[in-house]
Design a protein around this nucleic acid. Structure first.
Length: 468
RNA sequence: GCCCCGUUCGUCUAGCGGCCUAGGACGCCACCCUCUCAAGGUGGUAGCACGGGUUCAAAUCCCGUACGGGGUGCCA
């Protein structure tokens, strides 16, 4: 393939949605795979949307994912003159005409189906509020050449004379699309399937403008929710940024996104982007809609988290542990604690916002007791009071320099009581509840060492007091 | 209503006429490991939407039906 040129053309709508990110990714993969170029074009025909804030909401998530582009961002709103020029040419050539009918007037004429070319021969004069409509052919068919779906044919009689310039003089996106894709030399248009039905409009404009061979299209399968509806901002959690804030790693997110509608030939699914680039191709894209499955994303993210070194893990978890949302006073945070426990935490979480929950008992000054665990291991636990007393006494002579020794001491107490009582005494559960407040958590010994001798003894004491 | 697309385990997918008694992964279940929770290991559960063709042979090709989705805006 002679180096293709693709474009990612999102509308600035506030934030980048996972579906758009997937589209951007597939464009990027295709361009990089074939040594082509990617253009970033902001589809702001609606003009008011061109603010720095909206543009950042597109660019920052793309950068976060590790995607880049060779040209742009370009703004459709900056190309207004080119669009107007094209509209004029179409009107002059008879391919488009003025129309002053309002929406309600159109509905009055025909409640069931759209517009029927009523103004074609009314010879309406241009003016404020007057739109320009494209004159669709009444016969024949318009064919979209699509790399994912083959040739898709639309009967022209099913197409209505659509608006290419609004009443305020601004171009609609079909018109702008044709002009911009032509001017920017776009060879492949890769986008969501929801746009497949509007492609004949762009093709018809393209043809009327005498642009020659149109780009090749590739309409990607839609991303859908559990009810198999197109992912939507209103009902689904689709902001890429919300996944970032929840502690999904960008490399995991981009890996997962690549797997929606495409699969590597060797079936090795979890792999870095630079490898995916060498394997990707559009003809392997599946046409059926794909469910954006949070459980699968979690699995992939957890694999990436497990692969981090302790140092990397501590560094990447830090933003989730030092902010205002952290469950402890900021000055109590200590990165060494996270680094020391990294391996154990890594195998227990699916995303970074879960880290705090495993270590908060070390960093918070007071223990929050889980009542069920308290009852089970302290109140009902066999010889729990004796365990706590003996452990406290022996720990008083230790210097807390070895996690292994702490384990030996606690377990030893359990073994000895088992012997003297004649029934199995588990010493870990009461100690765990006394120190952490809960019945489940990290292996106790290293965290206990990090908690320190004074605080450990204090909590054991406090538990015995509370037990009465 | 009209137009378009789609349909392999619950999910993501492999499969592009014989290698398929349909493979992998996630999820789920069981067992092993384990003085917590996990992780890990082993095994299991489960699918070609339906009906016609074409062919010696169809999950794979064609037609139809059903179901799902998308579009049908002076949104993109």
């Amino acid at each position: 393939m002679s180096s293709p040129r693709v474009r990612f053309a999102p509308a600035p709508t506030g934030f980048l949605h996972v579906g758009s990110a997937r589209t951007a990714l597939f464009n990027w993969l295709f361009a990089r795979r074939h040594g082509g170029e990617m253009v970033l074009r902001v589809e702001d025909t609606d003009a008011a949307l061109k603010t720095q804030e909206y543009v950042d909401a597109i660019i920052e998530p793309l950068r976060w994912l590790g995607l880049d582009w060779d040209s742009g961002p370009h703004f459709q709103s900056d190309r207004r003159d080119r669009h107007s020029e094209a509209v004029e040419r179409l009107v002059d050539g008879g391919a488009a005409y003025y129309c002053d009918l309002t929406r309600s007037e159109i509905e009055e004429r025909c409640a069931a189906a759209g517009y029927h070319g009523w103004s074609r021969d009314r010879d309406v004069a241009d003016g404020p509020g007057v739109v320009v409509r494209f004159r669709c052919p009444d016969e024949g068919a318009t064919v979209v050449n699509d790399l994912v779906r083959g040739e898709v044919s639309f009967p022209n009689e099913s197409l209505e004379d659509f608006v290419i310039r609004r009443g305020d003089g601004s171009p609609t996106f079909h018109l702008a699309n044709a002009v911009d894709d032509h001017d920017m030399g776009i060879s492949h248009v890769i986008r969501g399937e929801d746009l497949l039905n509007t492609t004949p409009r762009v093709l018809l404009i393209w043809q009327a403008l005498g642009y020659g061979a149109p780009p090749v299209y590739a309409h990607l399968p839609l991303l859908v929710n559990a009810k198999r509806q197109k992912l939507s901002k209103r009902r689904d959690d689709v902001s890429l940024d919300s996944y970032r804030r929840a502690g999904y790693l960008p490399e995991a997110m981009v890996n997962y996104l690549a797997l929606l509608g495409w699969g590597p030939p060797d079936e090795v699914e979890i792999r870095p982007l630079h490898e995916i680039v060498t394997l990707f191709d559009l003809d392997a894209v599946k046409p059926a809609a794909a469910f954006f499955d949070p459980a699968r994303l979690d699995h992939i993210n957890s694999e990436y988290i497990k692969a981090l070194t302790p140092e990397q893990f501590a560094e990447r978890a830090e933003p989730f542990l030092t902010g205002a949302d952290a469950p402890w006073a900021p000055e109590r945070y200590d990165r060494d604690i996270v680094r020391s426990l990294a391996g154990e935490i890594q195998q227990r979480i699916a995303h970074l916002d879960e880290v705090a929950g495993w270590i908060d008992w070390i960093l918070r000054p007071d223990v929050v007791y889980d009542e069920k665990a308290w009852h089970k291991s302290i109140v009902k636990g066999r010889a729990a009071a004796e365990v706590l007393e003996a452990v406290e006494a022996r720990l008083a002579d230790d210097d807390f320099s070895s996690a292994e020794r702490l384990e030996a001491i606690v377990m030893g107490v359990g073994d000895e009581l088992t012997e003297s009582i004649g029934a199995r005494v588990r010493s870990q559960p009461p100690v765990r509840v006394a120190l952490t407040g809960t019945g489940a958590g990290l292996p106790l010994w290293e965290p206990m060492r990090l908690l320190g001798k004074d605080e450990t003894l204090r909590r054991l004491q406090e538990t015995r007091d509370r037990l009465g």
